[in-house]
Design a protein around this nucleic acid. Structure first.
Lengths: 207, 207
DNA sequence: GCTCTAACGGGTCTGTGGTTCCGTTAGGGG
DNA sequence: CCCCTAACGGAACCACAGACCCGTTAGAGC
């Protein structure tokens, strides 16, 4: 009678964890191959080798499952490289994002995740959290540049990192142009120059 | 027996045109209010005051209808302003995009359109065409800046315009951060400085 | 290793988005 | 102004995603 809450919270070990893992991987595959529109929880259950009832009970809706997938993806982090210069670090970041988005599977997955987030507040929150974590991981390279004197005091490190990614996502989702490495390098250069010039200094002192 | 092609092509005037107009406006409203996910052709037909059979026959699928809506939107163009300086023109552009994306209805509509494009090639092509037209409309202000000597010869005007929009769309779709006017102004400043520095010169001559 | 019950899963039912059928309305050429 | 037929529209039909029921499996505490 007195249930503790959502299914999977009282006995999260063993089988439950295996099922979650299998379903999230299946969801990732399905999103990648079918896109967000062509998604079907029964198909995901089949891919994962679990009963579809389980998927409906644990996650309820497609967007709920995508939100959980994003939370899971947010856990895993890939460490960043350090080159010693702002432009070098931003270029490394831009090329990492570029590689991810141009990879056929990963690119399709991210497109689907972003599409899912446009239609559901919880999924959107999960997506924002995922990118917030990724941006925070790279922000230190901007702060180091400030310490080296490459960028002015008060520079918004996270905004600089976002500025590097933005043109790549714009090409992927909106303009549809060729997403070659030159686009990534230009994005890094533009962000580096703008950061050096103080464009990303918080609360500009009237100018 | 020998049909000429798609419905609506042989007798495109009068009633057919009125129906198309009503359905596209209804689709716009539905996309804005329900988002791409919660879209239903029967609901659109109801809103438009036409039979749902008509909508299915003329457009077939939701994505087909969205693609047609984008083609229709691409027709209407809003003229740009000219301020006399690159930064001024880019700021005007950034604020225009900012106003569009922060308007509750327009912002929701564009989110839905972009989401629709991620899942269907025809819709994606229509979206790319729409933005290509808008970008081309603003490109002249960059070319004028080149003539004035504000930016180096060979600057890719369209890429500069895209660089202005990119951070705004990144915030709207991905980071979820506050989309205030400062973001727009920073985007314009960053693009202007990068353009001046030659970041957007085509085929950089090694350097 | 026994028990209790959280969590899984096959099978069935149902609401609704999408299709088809066929009669009705109204462009547009003669 | 009349006719022909392109295009519209109501209604019945169908398939399938998602909800529900109830028996089965396997964590976790003693």
């Amino acid at each position: 009678m007195a249930d503790g809450g959502e299914p999977g919270t009282l006995r999260p070990g063993g089988r439950t964890a295996r099922v979650r893992e299998a379903v999230l991987r299946a969801a990732e595959d399905a999103l990648t191959e079918e896109g967000f529109t062509g998604l079907d929880l029964a198909d995901i259950a089949r891919r994962a080798g679990v009963g579809k009832t389980t998927v409906y009970r644990r996650w309820g809706t497609v967007t709920g499952l995508v939100a959980d997938l994003l939370a899971d993806m947010a856990e895993q982090s890939s460490p960043r490289t350090e080159t010693g210069s702002l432009l070098g670090d931003l270029t490394a970041n831009a090329r990492l994002v570029h590689r991810t988005l141009t990879d056929p599977r990963q690119g399709a997955l991210f497109k689907a995740l972003i599409a899912a987030a446009t239609g559901d507040a919880r999924t959107a929150a999960a997506l924002h959290r995922f990118y917030d974590i990724r941006v925070r991981e790279w922000a230190p390279c901007v702060r180091q540049a400030v310490e080296r004197g490459e960028a002015p005091e008060g520079t918004d490190a996270q905004e600089v990192i976002r500025a590097v990614s933005a043109p790549l996502y714009y090409h992927l989702l909106i303009s549809g142009g060729r997403l070659d490495e030159a686009v990534a390098d230009r994005a890094a250069q533009a962000a580096a120059i703008a950061a050096r010039s103080g464009v990303y200094v918080r609360q500009p002192a009237g100018g």
